[in-house]
Nucleic acid binder design. Structure first.
Lengths: 260, 260
DNA sequence: AGCAACTCAGTACGACGTACGGAAAAGAGA
DNA sequence: TCTCTTTTCCGTACGTCGTACTGAGTTGCT
């Protein structure tokens, strides 16, 4: 519990093992251990992470630069490096922090309700932190909050009685579905892209597209769907529909398993 | 058919309407129209796109810079801007080109086979061009090949007889599922991240994680799954399993619709 | 008091996208 | 053929980025 900080066995303290490795894990799992010898820190790790999330929320993830975060905190850019090994690592910490907001389902509920609860929590998370959809592209951080949520999702899916390898599949399917919907929704509505293309510009290009290049003969199905208005639907529906189809399929699998 | 090129009605030729708009659409949908008045071009648009794909394939999408692509072609960096409005636009052209490789299913097959065919084509596409998983983050280009594939997928799903808005959902579900699997697989296996972190380094950090921070008491389900070896499974299985569950759910929906 | 450890931050380097402008090449009209 | 206009190619340069290096100042331990 009260272990001394400086001792990292068998690693050169200069390079801290692989900085992306042990150092990062310590930041994710250990308390930040406020200070050792030198002057008091002006900030805390949490403040840095908060500032990063604030910048990402306000100006978009493309503006998440060390200089911007530092300016938001009123410190020099290089000072951040005493809290965080680098930009990517700061982002990983932000991701784990975002996952911290996910609530866990009631364990006494049937498995399907629990899994649906997880899916809706994931959906809420992507809505609260849209910059997250840029994250899973990089690797998933091995942070405690990410793993807690994942563990509980696996636990819920295990209630189905399916064999382990199918539990993994189903859990991945659920997360992936929510992520997919979030991705399509957010890239449609938000400004999109790092160049300053406003949503208006994008719509202009779309409309000139319909008049100039789109031909109903080439795209008959899309045309029919468009004219029926079926392309516009609430995003909540998108999540729920896919989830329902998916879990229907899982239930079918359970039945098949039970009757064999 | 043989319209003259220079006339872009009611737009200032200096800004070309919104360059991200009309100009981009022309590049995607029109032949590049080799030349007008000045000196012959050293390259073709196709060569530029090919070079971009070569760089992305060889060094990863993070190394896809104008300077790198230009160097790969033996020209100056700024020369590329006579072929392509900018980096993001080059990327969009690359995306549409990747979609061009997708084959269409046999229209006489049952709907489920046709949809499965589309899913497997998408999967093959992500394997051939792993840099694509970085793309859908930005917006989906309104390119002809993207739209052809999408149109045909919609057509196939329409064969289910489901109402239009559910056709849209199902099609999105299929694409999103394949993308999700591709994302998780590729970020696991490939080098990941723009900093030069090798897969070895990543594994080092993982192994030091298991020893230091992971506790089986906190993550009992994951531990059980891990020990059963169920975390390792072929990626092909991942695609097929989710697809089967998903389409089972869709079939159930069709039956419900038919019996009402 | 002296030393060692640590924080903060200025400067600088190499990469990036791309605006600008100039030199050279090619067709069009005289 | 001589010009004029258009277009290509590309060197230079600006602003941004991540971050290595360095050093000055601050704190606690001995």
């Amino acid at each position: 519990m009260n272990d001394e900080r400086p001792a990292i066995p068998d690693t050169d303290p200069l390079t801290w093992g692989t900085p992306e490795g042990r150092h990062m894990l310590r930041l994710l799992w250990d308390p930040p251990t406020p200070a050792g010898r030198g002057p008091k820190q002006k900030l805390t790790l949490d403040q840095v992470i908060d500032a990063g999330m604030a910048v990402a929320a306000a100006d978009g993830v493309d503006k998440l630069s060390m200089r911007n975060v530092a300016a938001h905190l009123g410190v020099g850019a290089m000072s951040l490096y005493t809290y965080v090994p680098g930009r990517d690592e700061l982002f990983e910490l932000m991701v784990d922090r975002a996952w911290a907001g996910r609530k866990m389902p009631d364990r006494s509920a049937p498995w399907r309700e629990q899994v649906e609860f997880h899916a809706r929590q994931a959906w809420a998370m992507y809505q609260t932190h849209p910059w997250l959809i840029r994250s899973n592209l990089w690797r998933m951080p091995l942070g405690p909050h990410v793993m807690d949520a994942q563990e509980d999702l696996y636990r819920a899916v295990t209630l189905t009685g399916l064999p382990n390898h199918e539990v993994v599949q189903v859990a991945g399917l659920v997360e992936s579905h929510v992520f997919g919907v979030a991705r399509s929704v957010i890239t449609d509505t938000s400004v999109s892209s790092n160049t300053g293309i406003t949503a208006d510009d994008y719509w202009d290009s779309r409309s000139s597209f319909w008049g100039t290049y789109y031909s109903p003969e080439r795209f008959p199905t899309m045309t029919a769907i468009w004219e029926s208005g079926a392309f516009e639907q609430s995003v909540g529906d998108k999540v729920e529909f896919g989830l329902a189809r998916l879990l229907d399929g899982v239930e079918l699998l359970i039945e098949k398993l039970a009757s064999s």
